[in-house]
Amino acid sequence: DIIVVALYDYEAIHHEDLSFQKGDQMVVLEESGEWWKARSLATRKEGYIPSNYVARVD
């Protein structure tokens, strides 16, 4: 699995987006352009995240 960590807070604009806080970790389900589908490890919610707001966890 690809795990990413949020570098900034993000508040969902569209209903299919996933809100998150800086430091939250998410599993990337699908990488497509600038918006990736991800699942929050904390809340288990799924949605689209801006890929430039996150960094991969090695």
Rank of each mutant, 00 (worst) to 15 (best):
28 V>R: 01
26 M>T: 01
56 R>Y: 08
11 E>F: 09
23 G>L: 03
11 E>I: 05
2 I>H: 03
52 N>F: 04
43 T>C: 05
12 A>Y: 08
25 Q>G: 04
3 I>Q: 06
27 V>D: 02
22 K>H: 03
27 V>W: 06
51 S>D: 03
26 M>F: 14
11 E>C: 15
7 L>H: 15
56 R>Q: 12
37 K>V: 11
19 S>C: 10
25 Q>V: 04
45 K>H: 15
37 K>E: 05
25 Q>S: 05
24 D>Q: 09
37 K>D: 01
41 L>F: 11
40 S>A: 14
12 A>S: 14
55 A>W: 07
56 R>W: 07
21 Q>M: 04
2 I>R: 05
30 E>Y: 15
46 E>K: 09
39 R>N: 03
17 D>T: 05
39 R>T: 08
35 W>G: 06
38 A>S: 05
33 G>H: 03
55 A>M: 12
37 K>Y: 04
51 S>C: 11
49 I>D: 00
5 V>E: 05
51 S>Q: 14
16 E>K: 09
38 A>I: 02
14 H>Q: 08
9 D>P: 12
55 A>T: 12
29 L>I: 09
22 K>W: 00
28 V>D: 02
40 S>L: 13
54 V>W: 01
44 R>I: 10
8 Y>H: 12
13 I>T: 06
19 S>D: 07
4 V>K: 01
9 D>G: 07
50 P>D: 12
16 E>I: 13
6 A>P: 01
33 G>F: 05
54 V>L: 03
16 E>A: 07
43 T>S: 14
49 I>F: 04
45 K>S: 11
46 E>Y: 02
4 V>T: 02
4 V>D: 00
2 I>C: 05
42 A>V: 15
3 I>S: 05
54 V>K: 01
35 W>R: 15
54 V>R: 01
38 A>E: 00
25 Q>K: 10
54 V>P: 00
32 S>M: 15
29 L>S: 08
9 D>H: 01
46 E>H: 12
37 K>Q: 15
30 E>G: 12
4 V>M: 02
38 A>V: 13
42 A>P: 12
2 I>T: 04
12 A>H: 02
24 D>V: 04
39 R>A: 07
9 D>C: 03
17 D>S: 12
14 H>L: 09
25 Q>P: 09
2 I>E: 04
37 K>F: 14
4 V>R: 02
53 Y>Q: 11
45 K>Q: 13
56 R>V: 10
9 D>L: 02
21 Q>F: 15
32 S>L: 06
31 E>K: 15
47 G>R: 00
39 R>Y: 03
33 G>M: 03
44 R>N: 08
14 H>E: 11
43 T>Q: 14
57 V>P: 07
4 V>F: 12
41 L>I: 14
2 I>K: 10
13 I>V: 05
45 K>I: 08
5 V>L: 08
33 G>L: 10
45 K>L: 13
15 H>T: 15
10 Y>V: 02
35 W>N: 15
45 K>E: 14
46 E>I: 05
50 P>N: 08
31 E>R: 06
25 Q>C: 03
6 A>G: 10
25 Q>Y: 10
48 Y>S: 13
35 W>A: 12
2 I>A: 03
1 D>G: 14
1 D>V: 10
15 H>I: 09
12 A>I: 02
15 H>C: 15
22 K>I: 09
21 Q>D: 02
43 T>G: 08
14 H>G: 14
57 V>N: 09
22 K>A: 08
58 D>G: 10
20 F>G: 00
42 A>G: 14
20 F>P: 00
20 F>I: 04
11 E>W: 06
47 G>V: 00
44 R>T: 14
48 Y>R: 15
26 M>Q: 01
16 E>P: 11
7 L>R: 09
41 L>G: 04
31 E>L: 07
5 V>M: 11
6 A>M: 01
19 S>I: 01
27 V>E: 13
16 E>H: 12
49 I>Y: 01
57 V>L: 13
54 V>H: 01
50 P>C: 06
5 V>C: 11
3 I>K: 10
52 N>R: 13
35 W>I: 12
35 W>K: 15
22 K>Y: 10
45 K>F: 13
51 S>H: 11
23 G>F: 03
35 W>Y: 08
14 H>F: 05
45 K>P: 01
47 G>K: 00
51 S>K: 11
35 W>P: 05
41 L>M: 13
6 A>I: 00
4 V>H: 12
17 D>R: 13
17 D>E: 15
6 A>N: 01
24 D>C: 07
3 I>T: 10
55 A>S: 10
58 D>R: 07
58 D>F: 02
39 R>V: 06
40 S>K: 08
48 Y>M: 15
51 S>W: 09
52 N>L: 07
35 W>L: 12
39 R>C: 05
46 E>M: 09
8 Y>L: 08
49 I>G: 01
46 E>W: 06
32 S>T: 03
16 E>R: 13
17 D>Y: 07
54 V>S: 01
2 I>S: 06
53 Y>P: 00
35 W>S: 13
57 V>K: 14
1 D>Y: 05
14 H>W: 04
15 H>E: 05
4 V>E: 00
44 R>D: 15
25 Q>I: 04
53 Y>I: 07
47 G>I: 01
25 Q>D: 04
3 I>V: 07
51 S>E: 09
56 R>E: 13
45 K>D: 10
55 A>R: 12
48 Y>P: 01
41 L>E: 11
49 I>E: 00
49 I>N: 00
46 E>S: 06
45 K>G: 12
48 Y>W: 13
42 A>L: 11
54 V>N: 01
